[in-house]
Simulated assay, not measured.
Amino acid sequence: MRLPSTQALRALEAFARHGTVWQAAAELNITRSAVSHQLRFLEQDLGFALLERAGKGVALTPQGKRYAADVRRALTVLADAAVQYVDRGVLRGALTVSSTPGFASFWLCSHVAEFKRLYPDVSLRIVTPQRLDDVETPGVDVFIAYGDGEWPRHSVELISAVDFMPVCSPILLNQLGGLTEPVDMFRAVLLHLDGLGDWLNWFAAAGIVGPRIDRGVVFSDMNLVLAAAISGQGIAIGDNFVCRHLLDMGRLVRPFDLAVRSARAYYFVTEREREGNPAIQAFAGWLKSRVAQTTPVLHR
Rank of each mutant, 00 (worst) to 15 (best):
E43L: 14
S98Q: 14
V140M: 04
E13M: 06
R10Y: 06
N29G: 03
L51P: 10
F41Y: 03
A25M: 07
L124D: 06
L118I: 08
R72S: 09
P120A: 11
D87F: 04
R32H: 07
T31K: 12
L108W: 11
L75C: 10
T61R: 10
V97N: 07
T76D: 03
E114P: 09
S123Y: 05
W22L: 11
A74V: 13
A8G: 09
N29L: 10
E136A: 09
I126K: 06
A94C: 10
D134C: 11
K116R: 13
L28A: 09
E114N: 05
P62I: 10
I144W: 00
R125K: 13
F143S: 06
K56I: 02
A14W: 07
T6E: 08
Q38C: 12
A81P: 01
H18T: 07
A14Q: 10
A24C: 02
G47M: 11
N29E: 13
F115Y: 15
V86Q: 15
Q23C: 09
A69P: 02
D87E: 13
L95W: 15
G147F: 13
L50Y: 06
V142H: 00
A74M: 11
D133R: 07
V58T: 14
R73N: 12
L50I: 00
L78S: 07
A34Y: 01
C109F: 04
T76Y: 00
T100E: 15
E136M: 11
A25S: 09
A104V: 00
F106H: 12
V122S: 06
A113M: 09
S36P: 00
T76M: 04
L50M: 08
R32D: 12
R32M: 03
L91M: 15
T76R: 07
T31G: 14
V90I: 14
L50G: 03
T6S: 01
A94E: 12
A113Y: 03
I126F: 05
L95G: 00
V35G: 02
D70I: 00
Y119G: 05
A26Q: 11
W107S: 01
K65A: 12
F103D: 04
F115E: 09
P129S: 09
G64D: 05
L60V: 10
G93A: 11
S36N: 04
L91F: 12
L42W: 00
V71K: 04
R125V: 02
Q38N: 13
G47V: 07
L124S: 08
S33Y: 04
V58I: 15
Q7K: 15
V83W: 06
A54V: 12
K65H: 14
Q130C: 04
L46T: 05
